[in-house]
Design a protein around this nucleic acid. Structure first.
Ligand SMILES: [Zn+2]
Ligand SMILES: [Zn+2]
Ligand SMILES: [Zn+2]
Ligand SMILES: [Zn+2]
Lengths: 160, 160
DNA sequence: TTCGGCAATGTTACATCATAACAGCGGGGT
DNA sequence: ACCCCGCTGTTATGATGTAACATTGCCGAA
């Protein structure tokens, strides 16, 4: 099991372990590809993983700057671009924010459930939904590449 | 038939008529609700409808300023917010841009096919996809509200 | 060993997208 | 006449993202 699903985001879980799993997996994936997960990039990945809520680039910057004074916007955006390119994080388009991927290593567009109350965002992998997307594109004679699926609402915890 | 589907966006079609249909429909909808489709707001709607490609707020501003010198960013964003509130346009989150709605009057989140080559964007209404979204949320005990579905790729014309 | 290429990072400046806050104006009701 | 309220004007600023060039450090070729 790669990284624990964000389904547990709302429940108490050992998030320290959750982060460590993600970082460990990232190191393995990059090593296997010859991609350079530098200390800077790993630090940014760690910051993104600090919560199960999407984090803005400038929030990452603020946090990064605590240990890395020379950090500037390009520092962060380059690292985020690298991490997205390696499939280690996703961008949540409707929030202009970034989230650790729970299925890193398996190339995919993400599908997200975003709680408007608590901010917790769960990445789901739904085959039927994936099929429906492909079918919809095919029916319109459209060659789909990147898919953005973001559902906002209330998580189970917040709805209760 | 309300507004012609953007499926025809790539084919030659009488776009002047296409715009007129959309504006006429918008007037009817707003009149029926007591919503004030002021000349300014209608002008912004017209500008958004000038093409079947999503248009940025500042592009709208540039165009609007040709006939309306006092136009400023808030002028445009207020109009766009009104038009979104009335369901007459959609925001394309992955492009930070706005597009006329082809199903105005029927409240819905849009589903979009965005050509990365020519920019033409088609709004589709796919019941199976809608169901798959609802099922996916339900399965995760998530109360979905707003749904963002944007598929980028190549339209039939550009793929050929 | 020295040098040149290349990827990563540093650094400055700027581009793009969006909103806060308050002022002015004008129609409709009392 | 007066107030209320929605729309628009106006100034300023916040938030997000990128261009362009400089510097560093490693590694392989000459
Ligand atoms: Zn966790
Ligand atoms: Zn929640
Ligand atoms: Zn048209
Ligand atoms: Zn195209």
């Amino acid at each position: 099991m790669a990284a624990r699903g964000a389904a547990q985001a709302h429940q108490t879980h050992n998030h320290r372990e959750c982060i460590e799993d993600a970082l460990k997996r990232a190191r393995e994936i990059c090593a296997g590809r010859g991609a350079q997960l530098t200390p800077l990039r790993e630090k940014v990945l760690q910051i993104v993983w600090r919560s199960h809520k999407p984090v803005g680039a400038y929030d990452v910057l603020d946090e990064l700057a605590r240990s890395h004074k020379s950090a500037r916007p390009p520092t962060v955006y380059r690292a985020l671009d690298f991490l997205m390119g390696e499939g280690l994080i996703h961008k949540i388009e409707s929030l202009n924010a970034y989230l650790g991927c729970v299925e890193a290593g398996a190339p995919h567009s993400g599908q997200f459930l975003i709680c408007r109350q608590c901010g917790a965002t769960e990445e789901i992998v739904d085959a039927k939904l994936e099929t429906a997307l492909d079918q919809a594109a095919k029916q319109a004679h459209f060659a789909g590449e990147r898919k953005v699926v973001e559902i906002s609402g209330l998580c189970a915890r917040c709805a209760a």
